[in-house]
Design a protein around this nucleic acid. Structure first.
Lengths: 181, 181
DNA sequence: GTCTAATTTGAGTGTCGACTCAAAGAAACA
DNA sequence: TGTTTCTTTGAGTCGACACTCAAATTAGAC
């Protein structure tokens, strides 16, 4: 049976891992650094995680899940709502957004499974945006709606990338402008 | 005075570094791997480069320079031409494009100077696109042209990111579509 | 309180990284 | 050919990394 203490330590370790990833990327997230920040010794880390990879993947999953919150109801998405929640995620959790982007770019190189995962995730998002677009303008053809949403998402991703490099960049207004066009 | 042999070895080393970076990212570009691929021993590497960093930065500079070729003449850029050369770079040299993107994302985290560099480079590109847009449509206000070009470049960057994750993605047609809007 | 199982300790292992250097080997030029 | 300078060799250093484990400590059930 698990102790309460173990779960608390686990959380401290995950927090430390997330912070280090956000601050200095994969390079900074060494087991030693994670343990120091979490106030724990290596043995304790390995009592709770099988490997460093496991801790890091836990954070990545967290990031992936956080980008797209569960829909409130079937077909209830509005375009503004979707864009808004994307913006809120990137500006509100730049740490997770950064980890996601970083792992998407570098991880996909070495690990084809990671690339597939990211692309599948992207595809699902395009569909969700497309449905919202069709709902707003039923006159649009399905493929035309999809094409436009691909463009919208590409621009959103481009702006998000800019924002993560330059926190002064006003991601919010730029994103909203995209909807006006 | 330098021997001819040294220069040739230097090129082999840089080639090996570029390939390894493109194939497996920073992680794969170890001195050992670089030397093996270049058919050289570590001592020879360090006779020509002060550090591994120096070799890698040489590749990055190469990538940065290659994105934006020299203008053919003052104010001679057309929007289609600019987009076209961006597409050609990304699809023609995905190795360099990948290295650039990777370093922009991960390097900017640990190294603020890198972030500044990337942003300055981006700013210059926006200006170049803006001037081309103004040339095509002199009725446009300067700030409106700049705003639109920021959006165009964001979408281009987003599409480029997609292409680098998925070589089947048709970057060319998507990029051209952006101009039609 | 006592017993048991979960947790933490912290010194330690093996591996792989960047980088060094004295000595051997070519190139260039007289 | 002899000399000098440039280049390559390859064994070796040193530090940092992920990860281990027996022993000590602590928490929870009875």
């Amino acid at each position: 049976m698990t102790n309460r203490a173990g779960a608390a330590t686990r959380q401290r370790i995950l927090e430390a891992t997330r912070d280090l990833l956000a601050e200095g990327g994969l390079e900074a997230a060494t087991v030693k650094a994670i343990c120091e920040r979490a106030g724990v010794l290596p043995g304790s880390f390995y009592n709770l995680f099988d490997s460093k990879e496991e801790a890091i993947f836990t954070i990545i999953r967290e990031a992936i899940t956080a980008v797209d919150p569960d829909p409130e109801g079937e077909g209830s998405d509005t375009l503004t709502g979707l864009v808004d929640s994307y913006v809120k995620f990137v500006t509100g959790r730049p740490d997770l957004a950064r980890v996601y982007l970083m792992l998407a770019v570098t991880g996909s190189l070495t690990d084809p499974a990671m690339a597939k995962r990211v692309l599948r995730h992207h595809g699902a998002r395009v569909e969700r945006f497309r449905d919202a677009a069709l709902h707003a303008d039923p006159g649009l053809s399905r493929s035309e709606a999809e094409r436009r949403m691909e463009g919208l998402l590409a621009a959103l991703n481009g702006y998000a990338l800019h924002f993560l490099l330059d926190p002064d960049f006003d991601f919010g207004s730029h994103a909203i402008q995209l909807l006006a066009e």
